[in-house]
């Protein structure tokens, strides 16, 4: 589904990603963990070109995103992204937040998009919030809406950057539960998270990132129970 070839990223002369080569297959749920500043967000953001790789390639569905001739907007329509701080559009209703992109990009007619949005809202039990504004919702509700907004584009893959890190503890569960459902339905996912329980339960593969490299990877249970690298062991002893 997505190939990453010798990916490098620097900000100025600060190298943040160093020679990452990976392949994520359809249906995989990759969880990415690692210390703060290790490059997890940057790696994820390179996958949909929110950050431009300094060197190397990202190939999604056979399309080289780093090729200047690629229409990146087209590619992004098939890759959802969920942010730590939700990034809902505060001046638009929940309904408009969800339908804006599919309608503007002429993928759906307005009525069709509304129908689809209501269906998704029903799924997360937030149907009655359709005409509310983001400012009226709790953090957990906002994040579920943000996920719904991405789903409305019918993406082939979803990227999550610490989707529960900005939430009050009592709201983490509802968001993780929704993500788990998506995983079970077969969505291809890459999730940066500090929720080790979720990583263990939902992840099919785990990346441990450190200083811009994927230092260790494997099935989450394997890595958690028997880490090979000292750095991984050290990190896990702090978070588990």
């Amino acid at each position: 589904m997505i190939y990453v070839n010798h990916l490098y990223k620097s900000f100025g002369d600060h190298e943040v990603l160093h020679d990452i080569t990976e392949h994520i297959e359809p249906g995989e749920k990759v969880v990415i963990i690692g210390p703060s500043g290790s490059g997890k967000s940057t790696f994820l953001r390179c996958l949909n070109l929110l950050e431009h790789p300094t060197k190397g390639q990202v190939i999604f569905d056979g399309i080289d995103l780093t090729d200047p001739k690629t229409d990146i907007n087209k590619v992004r329509q098939h890759m959802g992204m969920v942010f730590q701080h939700f990034n809902l559009f505060p001046h638009k209703t929940i309904m408009d937040n969800i339908t804006l992109a599919p309608v503007r990009l002429k993928l759906m007619k307005p009525e069709e998009a509304r129908e689809e949005a209501l269906k998704l809202l029903r799924r997360v039990n937030l149907e009655e919030k359709a005409d509310a504004y983001p400012g009226q919702l709790s953090g957990g509700q906002k994040q579920r809406i943000a996920i719904v907004r991405s789903l409305a584009m019918k993406p082939k893959m979803m990227l999550f950057d610490e989707p529960t890190s900005a939430l009050d503890p009592e709201m983490v569960g509802e968001v993780l539960e929704f993500m788990k459902q998506l995983a079970e339905e077969g969505m291809t996912m890459a999730v940066v998270t500090h929720e080790m329980g979720f990583a263990r339960e939902v992840g099919t593969r785990l990346f441990f990132m450190d200083e811009g490299r994927i230092l260790e990877q494997g099935h989450p249970k394997e890595v958690f129970d028997d880490p090979k690298e000292d750095r991984t062991r050290e990190f896990l002893s702090k978070v588990l």
Binding site: N73, V75, R76, M81, N87, L100, A146, S150
Partner: peptide, 21 residues
């Protein structure tokens, strides 16, 4: 917030569209 532009762009909206909408 910079996240607004990123959210718009990550949905596949173009720069101009995101700017206007």
């Amino acid at each position: 917030d910079a996240g607004q532009m990123e959210a718009g762009r990550s949905l596949g909206l173009g720069y101009v569209d995101t700017m206007i909408q």
